[in-house]
Simulated scan of single mutants.
Amino acid sequence: MRSTYILSFLRISVSVLFYILLVFSVLFLVASIASIAGNDKAGDLTKKSYSYRVKAFGLQNTNEPFTYSQDSMVKYQKVADEYSVVLEPSSTIGYYALIMKLVYMALGLVILWNFKKIFKETSFRQPFKNTIIKRLRTLAALFILSDVIKLLDYFLFNSYLHHSIASTKFQLLTDVGNGVITGLVILVIAVIYERGKELEEENALTV
């Protein structure tokens, strides 16, 4: 009985997250188009600008010394070679940033959609289904693809940025690897599900 409640909670939660992301994506697209269309001054950064964190390599900046808390259990430091780069939406790099943000949102929607369908099709009476196995494989591929897109985004963003700021060796701060690990874990689950399906069919034939 408790498992049934957990499954119902997951179904509702994933559905809510999916529709929230869908609404947010539509609002973001509308706001971005309005920002680009309403920006008449070339080079004038607007409130709808895109912000990215970058790291500067090759500079001789020195980090500030650590500051300690009163009990000396915590220390913090201002990093000297990290910067916040703000992009104008109505520029080449701004258009690229918009496209990539939409790509990430679309990827998130597809992932949530597949999770939504998996939880909808899951049944404790018949847990092993071919449709669920296919969707798990699809999810594994999508998570791995997300890391590939992050790598491409890293190189393309840096290339666009260096055309605008050629004197500084800025590099986009990004996180790569989690998607591959998550994808491999889901792929293992898909293999286990597939084996469960085979055992279920063998037991049915035996009976």
Rank of each mutant, 00 (worst) to 15 (best):
F119Q: 00
S159V: 09
Y76L: 04
I181S: 10
A34M: 12
A97Q: 11
A166E: 02
L102V: 11
I192Y: 02
K78I: 05
N178K: 06
S123T: 01
T131K: 03
T122I: 01
L87I: 15
P65S: 12
V191W: 03
V103M: 10
Y193T: 00
G94S: 12
F66H: 04
E202I: 06
Y160N: 13
N158H: 14
Y83N: 07
F170P: 08
F57M: 06
K101W: 08
T174H: 14
L87E: 11
L142Q: 02
L21S: 13
K101C: 11
I99L: 12
Q171D: 13
I118T: 00
F24S: 08
N114V: 01
Q70C: 08
K101G: 13
R11H: 04
Q77S: 12
K116V: 01
N178H: 05
V148W: 12
L45A: 09
K134G: 02
M100R: 06
A166V: 02
M1E: 08
I99H: 07
I189D: 00
A141M: 03
L145N: 02
L22T: 10
K169Q: 13
I186W: 03
L145E: 01
K47E: 13
D40S: 13
I111F: 14
W113I: 04
I118S: 00
I192D: 00
D81V: 04
I36V: 14
I111Q: 12
S51A: 15
F57C: 03
V191I: 05
S35P: 07
I33A: 02
N158Q: 12
S25P: 13
K169L: 08
L22H: 05
A166P: 02
L136R: 00
R11T: 03
N39Y: 11
L184Y: 05
F66A: 04
Q171R: 15
K197P: 03
A204S: 10
S49D: 13
A97T: 11
G94D: 09
K47Y: 08
F143A: 15
I111M: 10
L156H: 15
V185K: 05
V86F: 10
S69E: 07
Q126I: 10
L17S: 15
Q77G: 09
L7R: 13
L102T: 04
N203C: 01
M1D: 06
M105G: 09
N178M: 09
I111D: 12
L152I: 15
Q171M: 10
T168Q: 09
K169D: 14
E194C: 01
V30L: 04
T138A: 02
Q171F: 12
F128D: 00
V191Q: 03
F57E: 07
Y95C: 07
S13P: 08
V180E: 06
S167F: 06
L59W: 05
V23D: 06
I189N: 01
T131V: 05
S123H: 01
V14M: 11
I149R: 11
S164V: 07
K150F: 14
Q77F: 04
Y193W: 01
Q70R: 15
M100L: 08
K101T: 10
L102P: 03
G43C: 09
W113G: 04
G58T: 05
Q77T: 08
K120R: 09
R125V: 08
V207F: 08
